[in-house]
């Protein structure tokens, strides 16, 4: 009963939002982590950097935990703000809570392409000093889906 009410409420608000918002946001509502992965797989193939075995949660984990050079000194790693255990909530440098990165804990993550691209763009430049490749993005999301 409760679930049904929630579903109706969600559908209602989605329709409302869809009605008001422009093209990009409507697409965002329809998105899913799998669709993000599909997009990055296509981009990686086009760039000729897609390995045989496809995306890897292991590589994603290594990327997430590593200390990187080349980025801004205040943010050497993803785990400067996110937790080493991605099921735990992180905190920004200003103390604001960040919902867990693990999909199991924050199910609405990796579904809004605009949001996902915005944060990859910013945070890869902050941490790595460059934009991430589609392979890195795909590995990252694959790791977070597995958590």
């Amino acid at each position: 009963m409760k679930k049904a009410t929630l579903a109706i409420a969600l559908a209602g608000s989605a329709m409302l939002l869809g009605g008001v918002a422009s093209g990009t946001s409507t697409a965002a509502l329809a998105g899913s982590p799998q669709e993000m992965l599909k997009r990055y797989a296509e981009e990686a193939k086009a760039a000729g950097i897609m390995p045989e075995g496809g995306f890897s949660a292991e590589r994603g984990k290594a990327l997430y935990l590593a200390d990187h050079k080349g980025g801004k000194p205040a943010t050497p790693s993803c785990t400067t703000c996110h937790m080493k255990d991605p099921t735990q909530p992180g905190r920004t440098r200003t103390g604001k809570l960040i919902k867990p990165m693990a999909l199991s804990k924050t199910p609405d993550r990796y579904s809004d392409p605009e949001k996902v691209e915005k944060w990859f763009f910013r945070n890869c430049r902050s941490v790595l000093g460059r934009e991430c490749t589609p392979l890195e993005k795909g590995d990252f999301i694959t790791f977070m889906i597995s958590q």
């Binding site: 801004k72 000194p73 205040a74 943010t75 440098r93 915005k118 763009f121 910013r122 945070n123 430049r125 902050s126």
Partner: peptide
């Protein structure tokens, strides 16, 4: 915003 107090906050 690309260097916003030590972080990239580009928009």
């Amino acid at each position: 915003l690309d260097d916003h107090f030590g972080e990239d906050a580009s928009l």
